[in-house]
């Protein structure tokens, strides 16, 4: 298993990407996609030393769904701020103390922060403990940190434990 399929998730993703790229969901393309899914991780596994530990795939799906909903509300909010009066903006930098330690999980959290309401992750400190976030409209720093912690960081901690 581990020798022939070093990255089962990546194999599946590659097969899926091939099907989408071919835009043809017939049996032939499926087989070809699975072949690529087997061969490419096999020959490139030396470049992927670390395996992201995905513990709860179902939880990840739920996380992605709630993220999709948040992205839409984020956009409505940003649209309102962009079109509204300029002096109503209260931008600020925020230092966010990370509880996550896994690098991949931090990457996912930073990307999530960038895609959701009025916040962009700007920098990660060298010791990987604080994430610098720029927010478009801050009324309460603690509330924003609390929201990120409960809404995104807590589920991610469960998923990549």
């Amino acid at each position: 298993m581990s020798r022939w399929m070093p990255h089962p998730l990546m194999s599946l993703t590659l097969a899926l990407v091939w099907l989408l790229l071919a835009n043809d969901f017939g049996l032939g393309q499926l087989l070809l996609g699975l072949l690529f899914g087997l061969l490419i991780p096999h020959f490139t596994s030396a470049f992927w030393p670390e395996h992201p530990r995905l513990r709860r795939p179902l939880l990840l799906t739920r996380y992605l769904l709630s993220l999709a909903k948040d992205i839409i509300t984020a956009n409505l909010q940003v649209a309102r701020l962009v079109l509204g009066p300029r002096d109503r903006l209260r931008p600020a930098f925020i230092q966010y103390e990370l509880e996550l330690t896994d690098e991949f999980a931090i990457t996912v959290l930073a990307s999530t922060v960038s895609l959701t309401p009025g916040t962009v992750s700007a920098d990660l400190s060298i010791d990987r403990r604080t994430l610098l976030i720029h927010s478009l409209d801050v009324s309460d720093r603690d509330a924003l940190c609390h929201q990120i912690r409960t809404r995104y960081e807590a589920p991610l901690k469960e998923i990549f434990r």
Partner: peptide, 24 residues
């Protein structure tokens, strides 16, 4: 809207928000 934000918002860090979210 994202492009309007790019022109209208006051500094670089606020301008960053428009394109990354709205345009995507």
């Amino acid at each position: 809207i994202g492009s309007i934000g790019l022109v209208r918002l006051p500094d670089f860090f606020t301008r960053l928000h428009g394109p990354t979210k709205a345009t995507t």
